[in-house]
Amino acid sequence: MVLEVEAIENGSETEPQANGYKVKLEVFEGPLDLLLYLIKKEEIDIYDIPIARITQQYLDYLSLMEQFDVDIASDFLVMAATLIQIKSKMLLPPDPTISGQEEAVEDPRKELVNRLLEHKKFKAAAEMLWTKVQVEQEVFTRALLDIDKENTEIAATVYDLIAAFKTVCDRQREEQEMEIAHEVMTMEQKMEELKALFTDSLEVNISRLFALAKSRTDLIMTFLTILELVKESVVRLIQDRPFGEIIAIKR
């Protein structure tokens, strides 16, 4: 038996076999797909399926799949069993204990037919969705505006930083009654000191950094070190509103 099937998607195509047959196998999504394919191919009326013929073809197809080492999913086997069950039911004469008057002896194929029809409907619906998505994929909307809703921050300018520095300087001058000479820190030392502050919190208020300074020299060193840290991209400075506090955030 040869099944000449058009390979559609990811269909496995084999090289001409030794016996000269070229068999193209379509990979069916599932047993219902395979049945629908057979019904269409044989031009069968879906409401009057010659169950013996279809069952035979279905089984032939499964053995063909086996031959080509296509893994047969259990769903296919369940359907094979269902088909055989329907076939045997149809071979049996109607139950004589049920009075012959009742015409409504249920066609054993009915449930299967309903499932096939339902499946077909959803296949058609899937095609409709496919068409829709084809069109909608070609529809574009305005690109996102570059607004970060979470952070309505304004980048602080160097002038804001100087202003903050000046405020602290003034305060320092008021508070400091006498100046005791401190050991002058190098920028490297200062940098380590400031970096250490970022270990428990990622955000530090700039005025807190200045407040830590012990002398004006130290204050100046703090200021220069902050600039250095910004330059080296260790921290960035943000100000949540104009003239607001400046916060240093570790990058």
Binding site: E9, E29, F122, K123, A125, A126, E127, M128, L129, W130, V133
Partner: peptide, 10 residues
């Protein structure tokens, strides 16, 4: 989307 995904989606 594959046909299988579209069918499932339907």
């Amino acid at each position: 989307l594959s046909l299988a995904s579209l069918e499932t989606l339907a």
